[in-house]
């Protein structure tokens, strides 16, 4: 039994290899890019618009609104990164209904790559927002003693991101695979539907957590100069969230 699509290698030359994870990722990228291009080729600015355009507008505005609700006041700035995270993970989960498809997010390499991207993006956005000095100073808040704990927190949460998504996606695919061998009729369909739900939830969790990390990095020093409403402060603490 394969635990990861990485193990399905189509071509290899030295360390260069073309496994199922990369191929399916390219497939997803192709679907997303071409689909977006086809739909956005003739966009209407009138009140009446095409059904697909309406769907994309709903998706984009919903992501934008969600980012804003997490605590990022200028969602357009983060929409490219966080929105793509969500769409990629969600599409990877949705495509599990296609027979023979292996979700690339079921590979720890993919989730690790995504978590690394978040790990890099958080300080980049933080520095872009507060400057290098301001961002680095957030590691010694409230005291210098907290520096190692903050660094550990950064690393551990990245690891948690990667393992959480991998575990959920891999387990979903694994459960379906096991069930197919035990009860090949009907029950795997139910589990597939449940897997779709789990995948969507995971996509949401992954992108929202990334947004929360970015929000925490960009808003650490802001309360001194710009008071933040109490209602939004609930989004900041990440450790209190219960994540499945």
């Amino acid at each position: 039994m394969r635990l990861s699509p990485d193990e399905m290698i189509f071509w290899q030359h030295g360390i260069l290899k073309l496994n199922a994870t990369i191929v399916f990722t390219w497939g997803l990228m192709l679907v997303l890019a071409v689909g977006s291009r086809l739909i956005t080729r003739r966009l209407s600015t009138d009140l009446e618009r095409a059904r697909w355009q309406n769907l994309l507008e709903i998706v984009v505005t919903a992501i934008e609104k969600q980012i804003e609700e997490v605590g990022l006041p200028y969602p357009k700035k983060y929409l490219g990164f966080l929105g793509t995270l969500f769409l990629f993970v969600a599409t990877a989960s949705l495509c599990t209904v296609i027979p023979g498809y292996e979700p690339p997010t079921g590979s720890l390499s993919t989730t690790a790559a995504l978590a690394l991207c978040v790990f890099v993006a958080v300080p980049l956005f933080g520095i872009g927002d507060q400057g290098m000095r301001g961002y680095l100073k957030s590691y010694v808040e409230p005291t210098f003693i907290m520096l190692p704990f903050n660094i550990i927190s950064e690393v551990s949460r990245t690891l948690a991101l990667a393992v959480r998504l991998f575990g959920n996606m891999m387990s979903g695919a694994m459960i379906i695979g096991i069930l197919l061998t035990i009860t090949p009729f009907i029950f795997p369909i139910v589990m597939t539907a449940l897997g779709l739900l789990t995948g969507m939830v995971q996509a949401y969790i992954f992108s929202v957590l990334a947004a929360v990390y970015i929000a925490a990095a960009t808003r650490t020093r802001k309360p001194k100069s710009e008071p933040v409403p109490d209602t939004r402060s609930n989004n900041e603490p990440k450790d209190t969230l219960w994540i499945p």
């Binding site: 496994n19 990369i22 390219w26 390499s109 993919t110 991207c117």
Partner: peptide
Amino acid sequence: LIDWFTVGAQALNF
């Protein structure tokens, strides 16, 4: 479970 080439490729793909 982690193939670092795949990690890099996926990061680039992303």
